[in-house]
Structures are given as C-alpha cells and as structure tokens.
Amino acid sequence: MSVLSPPRNAQSQPPSGRNSTRSARENFSAWANRHRKWLFAAPAMIFVGVLIVFPLAWTLYLSLTDSQGSVRAAAEFVGLENYVTVLSDVERFWPAVGRTLSFTGVALVCEVVLGMCIALLLWRPFRGEKWVRVAILLPLVATPVAVGMMWRLIFDPNIGFVNQLLGMVGIPPQPWLSGQDTALGTTIFMDVWQWTPMVVLILLAGLTSLSEEPDEAARMDGANAFQRFFLITLPLMMPTVIVAILLRGIDALKTFDILYATKGKGGGSFHEVETLNVYAYGLSFDYNQYGLSSAVLILFFMIIIGSMWLLTMRKKAVSK
C-alpha cells in the first residue's frame, strides 16, 4: 500500500456536512408532503386575508372618528359616538334594517322553494333536458345592473309591458317600482328571477348525488310522491339546502346594484327600497359622512357574520 493513499475507512465515509444537508432536505420534504394542502393554499389565503383585514381595519378606525368631507381631512377620535347616533336613528337606520331583513328573507324563501321545485323537475332525464337547463341559466348571464334596467322598463307605469298586459284583461295600471307599497316587492321579484337558477344548480347537484335505494324502498312500501319527498328526499337534502341558504342568503343581504339601478339615491324618494347597503352608500358618497357610514358598515358586517354563524351551526346540527 502506498503511504500517500488515504485509509480505506476515510474513503467510504461521506463528509459530515453533506450528510447533515441531505438529512435536512429529507426532513423538509417529508414535512412539506404532510402539509402540502396548506402550502399550496397559503399564498391565496394570505392574499385574501390582506384584502379583507386591511379594509375592515380601516373601516373600523373610521367608525371611531368624526371623519367627513374627505377621508384625508383631519379627524378626531370620538369613540362609540357614531354607533350611538346610528343606533338611535329610527327614521333611516332601523327601517333600513327592516327592509334588508325583509328583502333577504322573502327572496331567500322564494328562491329556495322555486329552486327545489325546478331541481326536482330536472332531476330525471327527459327529452330536451339540455335546452331547458340552458334556458333556466340565462338570467345568470346578465349583470344585476342590466337586469334592473330591463325590469325597470318592463314595469314602467306608462310604457311598460306588464301594465299593457294587465290592461288587456281589465286590470288598472299598477305603480310597481314607483309605488311606496309595491317597490320593495318588485325588486324582490327581480332578485328571485335572476338568482333562482343558482339555487337550482346547487340543489340539483345535491339531488344527483343521492342514492336511489331509499326512494326505491319507500316506493315498494307504497309511499306516494309527497311522502317520499318530505320523509326521505328532503331530510337527505338538508345539508345541501343549508349550503344554498348560506351562499344565497349572504349574497342577498349584500344586494345593492339592482336596488340602486332601479331606484337611485336613497332607495327612492321615500326610501322605499333603502337597505343598509344603500343607506351606507348614501352616507358616504352623497353626504360624505364617512364616520357614520363606517359605523353602519361595521354593524352590517356583524349582522352578516351572525347570520353565517347561525347557519353554520344549523348545518353542523343537521349533518350529525
């Protein structure tokens, strides 16, 4: 053996630094593999979190100041004064709360009931099924502003198609959007017309995922269609129904564009369709009362979060 050649043991052992680096890489790879779903979703979650947290924090700050005229103008800290002012406003704020809840509740009930009926009709295959589904989904293609302007022309008291049709059967013209008692109901009809197809899609997806065995067993036991629906299909569909209520209910609470497109500032001359969104918009952009409008938005945000929490708890109770 040459005196210059290294020992055999030294040649067979890798450097300790390289071994530790390889071990660290393997440990990181194993950790990343175990948490890959969170790692892939982390960038989007951080981005969405920043988009939500910053505007919410800024709105909360403005709600505690007397900011008005311009958001860059000097504002003094007033604490909960804006909240006290808003909550004591019985002429605009509380009626707006009532209209918001009425609009959401009535629209949601109509959309879920109609959506379930249409989904049941589309559940079983029939001739022309594809064309019917395309026709039902057409209202979702248009924007809410376009839908509002379209129905505004249709319900026009003078040239509207609806009053002309009523006149053919001897019914006098109705004010529809211009009437204090009919404006809110008319806007609810517009919302139901546009967003019922979305509920149909959700419920139809739930129906197609159901097993046919319980329904066939009930049919063999002599149960009629109503008994099979209320005792078998509907209980099995409740988690899906609550998901549809949750998604559509939150969206209905935030409705603004179709109301503003049809009635304009203040929800009409007598604030007949003024919801919390329209009320907050008027405070901000019509009167430049940013502190008060921010307080309204924070209270509105709390209502939405409370509604989401109640529906989520209900969904968990039904799923058990």
Results as ranks from 00 to 15, higher is better:
120 L>N: 11
312 T>V: 09
116 M>D: 03
312 T>Q: 11
57 A>D: 04
5 S>P: 02
20 S>L: 12
147 V>K: 04
92 R>W: 04
232 I>K: 13
18 R>F: 12
70 S>D: 09
109 V>M: 05
177 L>N: 03
108 L>E: 01
110 C>P: 00
259 L>E: 00
231 L>E: 08
251 D>I: 05
186 T>S: 15
161 F>V: 12
179 G>L: 14
133 R>G: 15
157 P>I: 09
269 S>R: 13
186 T>M: 12
315 K>N: 15
166 L>Y: 11
226 F>H: 12
151 W>C: 05
292 L>Y: 04
49 G>D: 09
236 L>Y: 08
213 E>R: 13
217 A>P: 05
34 R>Y: 12
84 V>Y: 13
13 Q>C: 09
306 G>N: 03
219 R>P: 00
162 V>C: 01
156 D>V: 06
67 S>H: 02
147 V>W: 01
117 C>R: 11
6 P>N: 04
318 V>I: 11
302 M>V: 13
175 P>Y: 06
312 T>P: 00
29 S>Y: 08
242 I>R: 01
263 K>Q: 11
303 I>S: 08
149 M>Y: 11
315 K>H: 08
220 M>Q: 08
93 F>I: 09
184 L>F: 03
10 A>H: 03
315 K>C: 04
171 I>A: 09
229 F>W: 12
35 H>F: 12
208 T>W: 14
311 L>G: 12
15 P>M: 08
5 S>M: 07
18 R>L: 15
239 P>K: 02
16 S>A: 13
226 F>K: 13
163 N>R: 03
34 R>G: 09
85 T>D: 13
282 G>C: 03
111 E>N: 10
241 V>S: 15
288 N>E: 10
254 K>R: 12
89 D>F: 07
282 G>L: 01
248 R>I: 04
228 R>S: 14
68 Q>F: 07
267 G>A: 09
243 V>Q: 02
164 Q>F: 06
62 L>Y: 05
12 S>R: 13
103 F>L: 09
41 A>Y: 00
193 W>V: 00
178 S>Q: 15
178 S>T: 15
114 L>Y: 10
170 G>T: 14
279 Y>A: 03
267 G>H: 04
261 A>L: 01
219 R>Q: 13
293 S>P: 02
236 L>E: 07
146 A>I: 12
124 R>N: 06
306 G>Q: 08
214 P>I: 10
76 E>C: 14
183 A>Y: 01
2 S>T: 15
136 I>L: 15
40 F>C: 06
255 T>G: 02
204 L>I: 03
